[in-house]
């Protein structure tokens, strides 16, 4: 067997489950399959997978409940799968602790890309064990937490206090989609409807500052109606979303 990390696929529809299994096979990922919520919980406890791909529309259990239960004792990345017209479900799952989402119908390439993002996070977490690093590095982006400064390709980026806070929050959760509500709560403490607009503006400014200094590769991804995510950028850039 390869030493690739093990993936858990939770999906009640046989056709989609087979498609995902076949895709994982072609890439040589070991995997386990679960058809419903109770099987999923069993698999998580017995096999301790590295990443879980979780369909939100399961017959026996609410997907959000499964995320809450699992999050009680593991930080394993969870990628939820749902239809596009159900943004509220996605936001609910992300707020409950999911890392990312896939929208049906998705292409296998897309699924593999998301999986790689999640696995990189697992890798980074393992490296960073033993305390928070005083310096964050991601592609050309470097944040010196102690000095309170951010650099792009060695040049300092001039950020306002809120932009800096936003950047740090995204950096600490690299690879994870953060919902608007989560960000507002973390940065402003509480929020009103008008703050949602402000968040859009700050994010747009921050993205611009990172982009103008760092070429075409976007560091911050916008998920309209849902939230934002800091991408882990490898050098040289290998794939885009």
């Amino acid at each position: 067997m390869s030493n690739k990390p093990m993936i858990l696929v939770v999906e009640d529809d046989a056709a989609v489950r087979n498609l995902m299994a076949a895709t994982l096979d072609t890439q040589g990922y070991p995997y386990h399959l679960a058809r419903n919520g109770s099987e999923a919980l069993m698999e998580v406890t017995t096999h301790q997978p590295a990443v879980m791909l979780l369909d939100l529309g399961l017959p026996d259990m609410d997907g959000v409940d499964i995320i809450r239960k699992v999050r009680g004792w593991t930080t394993m990345p969870i990628i939820v799968i749902s239809a596009r017209s159900e943004d509220a479900d996605k936001v609910g799952a992300l707020d409950a602790g999911a890392d990312d989402y896939l929208t049906k119908p998705f292409s296998v390439d897309e699924m593999l890309a998301r999986l790689r993002v999640a696995l990189r996070r697992v890798h980074a977490d393992q490296q960073a064990q033993g305390g928070e690093s005083p310096v964050y590095e991601n592609g050309g982006l470097r944040i010196d937490y102690a000095a309170g400064c951010a650099y792009m390709a060695g040049n300092e980026i001039h950020l306002t206090p809120i932009e800096y806070k936003l950047l740090c929050l995204l950096a600490r959760n690299t690879g994870k989609v953060l919902t608007h509500n989560y960000i507002l709560k973390e940065i402003w403490g509480s929020y009103t409807a008008s703050d949602v607009g402000s968040l859009r503006v700050f994010m747009a400014m921050l993205r611009k500052k990172l982009q103008s200094d760092g070429g075409a590769q976007p560091y911050i991804q916008t998920h309209i109606g849902i939230g934002y995510r800091m991408l882990r950028i490898d050098r040289p850039p290998e794939e885009t979303q």
Partner: peptide, 11 residues
């Protein structure tokens, strides 16, 4: 909700 037009177009 208030949304940036650029973001909607990108999406």
């Amino acid at each position: 909700q208030a949304e940036l037009v650029t973001e909607a177009v990108e999406e």
